[in-house]
């Protein structure tokens, strides 16, 4: 868990002209470029189908980009052969809307699955993880507020608890960056806020950036410091959360009365 060496190194993540055209001809991403220079929570907003999910999945190549470049630190991810791609994926933690836990496995097994990239097949078959990983998993369980639930089956947990396991699994990788795909869309509003707060504080503690797809504009603004706006696969906004104005939202989503969606500046809700 050593902090990344500071200094005038390459950006943490550099996306350049990233483009994805699906076999049907749909252009999900159209020459998207941006860089992440410092550890912060960055929200990606945009309508359904604007390319948010594709963007995040192109970064760890769960979806194969058509062209463009994704640089994670000094590593160019696009074009990596399978073995190196797996190496690179270890450095990228991912959190999902539907949590994507293995339901029939225990919380502990799900957390430890974040270490799969670092243990062999036989070890994972026998569930023989290094003692340090196990200690880290117990600490993680405590940190995400699930202490004592290590032997519960994942499908026995509530939605919020399941997402906490999902977050823990991603952080068990000790990733350089977190990719978060609609983490709150399956949760109630209160749990959604708790989950966003947890992601934000963990990213801050570990000094890692988190790129978060999110539908809820108010949540995006409340829990991120920078916002990317996607519209039909193009990046149409990239700026501090405070600069998200009705005009910008109209640019991203189309005309609508946005006055009640955006929080007036300064009314920041924190606590708990």
């Amino acid at each position: 868990m050593a902090a990344a060496p500071a200094g005038a190194k390459p950006p943490l993540l550099a996306i350049d002209k990233l483009t994805k055209v699906y076999p049907g001809g749909a252009r999900a991403l159209d020459a998207v470029s941006f860089t992440i220079e410092r550890p912060e929570v960055i929200a990606v907003i945009g309508s359904s189908g604007a390319g948010k999910s594709t963007l995040i999945r192109c970064i760890n190549r769960l979806v194969e980009p058509t062209s463009g470049s994704v640089r994670l630190g000094a590593t160019e991810i696009v074009g990596l052969p399978p073995a190196q791609l797996r190496q690179a994926r270890r450095r990228i933690g991912m959190i999902f809307q539907e949590f994507n836990l293995v339901d029939r496995l225990t919380v502990m097994e799900n957390l430890l699955s974040g270490r799969l990239g670092s243990v062999g097949f036989l070890a994972s078959f026998l569930r023989r993880y290094p003692p340090r990983d196990i200690a880290n998993a117990f600490a993680m369980l405590d940190r995400v507020g699930l202490a004592g639930l290590q032997d519960s089956r994942a499908d026995a947990l509530s939605g919020g608890q399941r997402q906490r396991v999902g977050i823990g699994r991603a952080l068990m990788q000790d990733p350089d960056i977190l990719l978060v795909d609609e983490p709150t869309a399956s949760l109630d509003p209160k749990t959604a806020r708790q989950i966003m707060r947890l992601i934000g504080s963990l990213a801050a503690e570990r000094e890692r950036p988190a790129l978060v797809n999110i539908h809820d504009v108010a949540l995006a603004q409340g829990f991120s410091s920078r916002i990317l706006g996607l519209k039909a696969g193009r990046l149409v906004f990239d700026g501090p959360s405070a600069e998200l104005t009705p005009a910008v939202l109209t640019e991203i989503y189309g005309a609508e009365d946005w006055s009640r969606t955006i929080r007036p500046a300064g009314e920041d809700e924190e606590g708990a």
């Binding site: 760890n60 769960l62 797996r86 190496q87 690179a88 994926r89 270890r90 450095r91 990228i92 991912m94 999902f96 994507n100 836990l101 293995v102 496995l105 097994e109 699955s113 974040g114 270490r115 799969l116 990239g117 670092s118 097949f121 994972s124 078959f125 999902g166 699994r169 990788q173 990719l179």
Partner: peptide
């Protein structure tokens, strides 16, 4: 998808 994104090998994806 989640197991793939941890950098697990194909055999591990099938197994876990």
């Amino acid at each position: 998808e989640a197991i793939e994104s941890t950098g697990a090998g194909t055999g591990q994806v099938y197994l876990i």
